[in-house]
Amino acid sequence: MTETLKIGIDLGSRKAKFALMRERDILRLADLDTIAFYKKYGSMVGDELSLDLAGSGIFTPEELAQAAITVTGYGRNSINLHGARVISEIKAHVAGARTQTGLADFTLLDMGGQDTKVAQVVAGRMVDFVMNDKCAASSGRYLENMAAVLEVSLDELSSHAEDPIALDATCGIFGESELIGQILRGYPLSRLCAGVNLTLVKRVMPMLKRFPSKKLVITGGVALNRAMVTLLSADCGMDVVIPAHPQHNGAIGCASLS
């Protein structure tokens, strides 16, 4: 019996992520800028957005013909993909975390481009979750904005965790003004970067305290921020686990459920 090919698609606010799996084996991962992907491969069919997956070259025509497809993300409900299954983001990310880590009991922290999700997983099942989607101040977009203010790359920003300055604004916009004020006070770049990373930790800690576990799995692009992970590990009281592919976790979760 031929093992089934499975495709997972996570249409995020910043990146569109794709995963091709056979059973539990990851065969291919890919990602494209979401807006560029829509512009190049999207078209309106009636009131729905249709995507030319074959034209994108991410998957072969044979793979698309054989594979079961599951979709999640911001664009999941506006996409017209014939035969595709649509699932919620939190379901996809929990499934991805389980697939990548093999854990059955953990707290999930997913930090995406524009929102943050925290879920508690017990015996392999999500029992509760909370989501911050009202403000991007605890997301990747916040880090992008702060890096732009500091005129550094995201990689440079993520390398500083020592002696952070205090940044207390809870709003991303006010946070920019506060950061500029601290720049004018002459603080060194390393402390300013560390302060930005610590601010992210401060914003997610109230969510994490609702769902204590022995293990904390961090997914999403922000999981690649080394300094934020270091600061969070010191504060959360849980063993932090970063899956091999944190940015593609939602797509992997979709594929695993296809």
Rank of each mutant, 00 (worst) to 15 (best):
A137M: 11
L167W: 12
E156M: 14
L157H: 14
F59G: 02
K91Q: 15
K117N: 09
G83K: 05
S153F: 09
A148K: 14
I79Q: 04
S139F: 02
I58S: 02
A166C: 08
T116K: 02
E156A: 10
A161Q: 03
L108I: 02
S138K: 00
L179R: 06
A136R: 08
I87K: 03
V149T: 15
L49P: 00
L154C: 02
D110R: 08
M111G: 07
V71F: 00
L167H: 09
V149C: 11
R85T: 15
V149F: 07
D163K: 15
E162A: 15
D115M: 03
I58F: 03
L108E: 07
Q66F: 00
D155W: 00
I90N: 05
R98G: 07
I165V: 15
F59P: 11
D133L: 01
Q66R: 15
F59H: 10
D110F: 06
V118P: 10
A84K: 03
G73M: 09
C171Q: 08
D105Q: 12
L51C: 06
V152Q: 05
S158N: 05
G124W: 13
E156S: 13
D163M: 08
D105F: 09
L108M: 11
K117E: 07
G96R: 11
G172T: 04
L150A: 06
G96E: 12
G83S: 08
C171F: 14
N132E: 14
R85H: 13
A68G: 15
Y74C: 00
N80V: 03
N77I: 02
L103P: 02
N80W: 01
S159W: 00
Q66V: 00
H82C: 01
H93W: 07
V152E: 09
L109P: 11
G175W: 11
T99G: 03
A54N: 12
Y74N: 07
T99R: 10
I58R: 07
T72R: 04
S56K: 14
C171L: 11
A95D: 02
A169D: 15
L167F: 08
R76D: 01
V94C: 13
D168P: 00
Q120S: 12
G73H: 03
D168Y: 08
A97W: 05
N80G: 00
H82D: 09
L108W: 12
K117A: 05
K91L: 10
G75Q: 00
D128A: 15
A148P: 04
A147I: 05
A104R: 15
T70N: 06
A67I: 01
M131D: 04
F129P: 13
I87C: 05
G172F: 00
C171K: 05
L64C: 09
V122L: 15
V86P: 01
E162V: 11
A137H: 06
C135T: 11
G140P: 08
